[in-house]
Design a protein around this nucleic acid. Structure first.
Lengths: 334, 334
DNA sequence: GCGATTTCTGTAAACGTTTACATGGCGGAC
DNA sequence: GTCCGCCATGTAAACGTTTACAGAAATCGC
């Protein structure tokens, strides 16, 4: 591998000059610069990232910690993150599949000296402590995590508001028996969305047995299973609110398999508005969240945190979401 | 930031001993090891990745170069890559949105000293030269790229075979006017799939004007537009083969908007079998590719290449794909 | 109890950069 | 023509590790 020394020797200058020429430092003649860059190009020299990081204490990389990479939601988030990072001249070190605190800690440790800041997306409620331990190490921004607003920087979706809006929508359509397919018990987004569901349902005076809850895991398959189970319920709901679009899509499929018409016989609503949602049959009524913008926002927040590190003050930012009514919801059957 | 020196001082040993204790080297007493690790934990010491990489010449990271991160296909690939990498103790440095050769080269350069190997997924035909320049730098595996088999390691989908199978399927159902929605002109997968389409259509003796081709870009929206345009065609096709599932899903939506029934009036087929495909209405006939396995396979290939670097011999591996017939295709209307 | 051998720990060099500081050369002002 | 100052370049230290080698302590055989 060709190093800066090889270039220096070949060009007949010192390594300092090569370094300066490559980094566009002012103090080098135009002639020398061209000469050095020529040699460098000819030799195929590329600076060694680790060496550079070691001395400059900068890596031009931000770490991203995810629970999983499954589904369109996460891929959209990453897309936004990547775009914003690239715009700022940063790379992305991605680490996913961290269900347990223990794994998160391990991933965290592995990041020191490799990243300048960290974006943590860990909706799991248990991971909080693990995150806290590292928040003084380098700048951290939490994305969609449960967090005390004053101790962390965080970006969260207004889950509560979104859930309220969509459940209200269903109630306004005359539904009085509404089921919710939740995510896992420890998932923050799911818990918040369920909180909205429960609130609105209670306000509307809907009895507990008419506000059925059934647990999924945010995957299409779990939505399918949940909806299939709901069809067997003694008092079948006239509307289903799934805690995310993937489960809603699975539910649509199960209902069709059970020969129910959506929305004539039963309404379905999701959450997130993944790109696919509008192309469903029927198109999915859901809560729109600008997912990639969410990722981009979090990244920009992190980048600015990294610049102003000493006088930084933590903030929690809430991104709003809006109800999108499409074909999968309609008036309750008579 | 606490370094190995701090730990050494605090523990009253040399840095060498700390290093050995942390890395589980044999030559250190159990007592010393425990003592050192205690101090390290108390001080919250984490080794500095860059420093370690510099001396060991290993980064425990593999780079992933992508054209974009949009859609379920890429997210599934990354998922497989991430899982395999994690299993092998590697991290992922992701860099996406590289449309032009110039950008690919820049991304490549940024990777030196940061990764031990590189996974390149660049279906763009123009990027080939850029890739070649770096193949002697570190181990590279191409994923779904056009490549001379003997000069690179590569994994490709058997696009040709898959496309043939699905077009034959449509023809066997009696369709004689079949349209294809392709991807971009420079996209390798798309070109190969189109080649399969053309071959089979010609063999079946279908006239050129009955084998309409229309260009999309692999997005749902482009599939929607393409299908909408096909509805206006003088001789409307009775079947549509989209070069990927996203476009097929967009097409389904457009056909529904145009009041055509799928599959009674018109059949639709996709490619990839993204997780969502089976939940469509109607469920999508497509070509199944085990996408995340593809990513995992490429990663394992890269890892083994990294181990046996000198005597490594390049191979091209072709992963097969299988026709999956679901509800979106049926006999041609009379 | 003494030398040989083994086992553990310390010293210091090395990895490839960047950058503060030193140095030398050259031009301009007088 | 001399001196001063500036500007381009070079020298060398530093970043935080790992590891070859050396050295000290402990164990063992006799």
């Amino acid at each position: 591998m060709v190093t800066i020394k090889d270039v220096a020797r070949e060009a007949g200058v010192s390594v300092a000059t090569v370094s300066r020429a490559c980094n566009g430092s002012a103090a080098v003649t135009e002639d020398t610069r061209r000469h050095v860059l020529d040699i460098a190009a000819r030799l195929g020299y590329t600076p060694h990232g680790a060496a550079r990081s070691l001395i400059t204490n900068r890596t031009s990389t931000i770490g991203v910690l995810l629970p999983d990479l499954y589904g369109e939601f996460f891929s959209e988030v990453i897309r936004g993150v990547d775009q914003a990072a690239q715009r700022g001249g940063y790379h992305l070190l991605v680490s996913s599949s961290h269900d347990e605190s223990r794994e998160i800690v391990a991933a965290f440790r592995a990041m020191r000296g490799r990243v300048d800041g960290l974006l943590v997306m860990s909706p799991d409620l248990d991971a909080r402590a693990a995150v806290h331990e590292f928040t003084d190490r380098f700048p951290v921004v939490l994305l969609n995590c449960p967090a005390e607003a004053d101790r962390y920087d965080s970006i969260v979706i207004d889950n509560l508001d979104g859930a309220r809006a969509i459940v209200r929508h269903l109630i306004e359509l005359g539904h009085r028996r509404i089921a919710m397919i939740t995510g896992r018990e420890r998932n923050y987004d799911s818990v918040e969305r369920r909180r909205g569901f429960r609130e609105v349902v209670r306000e509307a005076g809907i009895a507990g047995e008419d506000a059925l809850e059934i647990t999924g895991d945010f995957s299409e398959a779990s939505g399918f299973r949940a909806a299939a189970a709901l069809l067997e319920a003694p008092r079948r709901p006239t509307a289903i609110f799934a805690a995310n679009d993937s489960m809603a899509i699975g539910a649509l499929s199960a209902l069709r398999a059970g020969s129910l018409r959506v929305p004539e016989d039963i309404s379905v609503a999701g959450f997130d508005d993944i790109p696919m949602a509008q192309y469903m049959n029927p198109p999915l009524t859901t809560v729109h969240v600008d997912i990639s913008a969410l990722g981009a926002l979090a990244t920009e927040r992190l980048l600015s945190h990294m610049r102003e590190v000493p006088e930084h003050v933590h903030r929690q930012e809430v991104v709003s979401c809006t109800l999108v009514v499409r074909g999968s919801s309609a008036s309750a059957p008579a």
